[in-house]
């Protein structure tokens, strides 16, 4: 029986975009303080220019961020 709230995290590396995170995991600051997670599925910034890091704000599209080699 899988419990959705205790499901192992699964991270989708979105092409040219963020890391999409589903499942439970601890998102914390370097000091170990929790970072508020407002929704069940979150997108973490991978391009480095989000204004709401560690979350994605869609700006990767404006700067032409790509994940291809």
């Amino acid at each position: 029986m899988s419990d959705l709230n205790r499901a192992a995290p699964r991270i989708v590396a979105c092409p040219n975009g963020p890391l999409l995170v589903r499942g439970e995991l601890d998102l914390v600051t370097p000091e170990g303080d929790p970072i508020e997670r407002k929704r069940r599925t979150i997108a973490l910034c991978r391009c480095g220019v989000s204004s709401i890091k560690p979350f994605c704000d869609g700006t990767h599209k404006a700067i032409g961020f790509t994940t291809t080699e």
Binding site: V12, G17, C56, D57, G58
Partner: peptide, 9 residues
């Protein structure tokens, strides 16, 4: 800003 960056994916 945050929600739709998730939803679009």
């Amino acid at each position: 800003v945050e929600a739709d960056a998730v939803h679009e994916q």
